[in-house]
Design a protein around this nucleic acid. Structure first.
Lengths: 205, 205
DNA sequence: TATCTTAACTTGACGGTGTCAACTTTGGTT
DNA sequence: AACCAAAGTTGACACCGTCAAGTTAAGATA
């Protein structure tokens, strides 16, 4: 039954997963405006309302897509963090760089993940929150580690410090991917500036 | 003819301006999803397609709304900058604070102004760019002034420095208004942290 | 004053969208 | 063998943005 080539034709087999994948493809190809349930269904080869057996409504589908985005981002953060060969300062640079690179590589997905559509009011699903909050908390944990290692003042509130740091990468990423920076700025150069502006006081690292 | 109370009924008199105002009201009341040309027209008391004589399409209307937003933000920046009674450090704090406060007071407008909808590809109108770029450039100019006054290294590229600063406020603002910060953090405290993290090395100001 | 031009506004129509209700098919359980 | 619940279907509805063709009225021209 899990044989993909077998034409069971009526029951799809793994429609929920397929919908998420194809919808994300459509998002990356043509932006959020071109993601419609009807086009998605037709592209997957299924009727208009079939998706409703797997997602309560369109918002739930979008939340599902964002959910996977947060898992990716969390994974990227983890990989950078667990690299033993880097100095603290390099760790910090890598966090900033990888984060902005992720946004740059997946602009529409990133916009979806952090946009108002999904988060305002109470429209975010529980699953989305369960996926996103650990990702946020990991960034707080990294900040605490950086504080311990001397990159930032240990006495400062780690949550606040990480909010400022995260704000910075988030802001740069968004301005970057939305094409608001007028020149075709190099990611690496901006990251260098961000790092040096935060760490100018602790050159010993 | 400009008499508002006079029921000329067929010709509105100042429809373009009224549309922008009412659309922005609708945006602030119920978010971008509730802003439709048809509801807007009906609320203004005009037929469905009347707006098309003043805006090429919906995107042009949205650009018009964002345009006004950038004029407001530019004005706020100017006001803070021209306040003679503040020290440099206070100027810097005020810039950050006022910016985030603006976003906090007008969350949906802010999302519109900086969102992908309007900026991606070539969908931004010339008028929007004419309104937004001076606002951006003013921030670069402020940064140069801060560099001269010793807040930041004069040798650094002003554009890059301002991109990082602007990224920070933009990112904090967005995370704030989208309700992604889990606790209802005080704006002032976050601004304090942002200022001190950038200026820790130059305490003399 | 009479006529003409044209911008502002209207109605009708089309294809696309999210979503609901009612129906059919199917795989697995009793 | 009978049944049930999950998965998928078709039809319908109320919206939406936008185009084409027609109407109204304000202001310039003569």
């Amino acid at each position: 039954m899990n044989n993909i080539n077998e034409k069971s034709s009526y029951h799809h087999g793994d429609l929920r997963e397929t919908l998420l994948i194809v919808a994300t493809e459509m998002l990356q190809e043509n932006g959020i405006n071109e993601v419609s349930l009807r086009k998605l269904a037709s592209r997957v080869g299924v009727s208009r309302t079939a998706p409703y057996h797997h997602f309560k409504d369109k918002n739930a589908l979008l939340c599902g897509m964002a959910e996977k985005g947060f898992e990716q981002l969390h994974q990227i953060n983890k990989c950078g963090y667990e690299d033993e060969e880097l100095s603290i300062r390099e760790h910090f640079y890598r966090f900033i760089h990888d984060y902005i690179q992720f946004a740059h590589n997946n602009p529409d997905l990133y916009e979806l993940m952090f946009g108002r559509t999904i988060w305002k009011d109470k429209s975010s699903t529980q699953e989305l929150r369960d996926s996103a909050y650990p990702c946020f908390q990991f960034q707080v944990a990294m900040t605490q580690e950086w504080q311990k290692k001397g990159l930032f003042n240990v006495d400062d509130n780690a949550l606040r410090v990480s909010q400022v740091l995260w704000g910075t990468v988030h802001g740069i990423a968004k301005l970057f991917i939305d094409g608001i920076y007028t020149d075709n700025s190099k990611i690496e150069e901006i990251c260098d500036y961000a790092v040096s502006m935060f760490l100018a006081k602790s050159k010993e690292n």
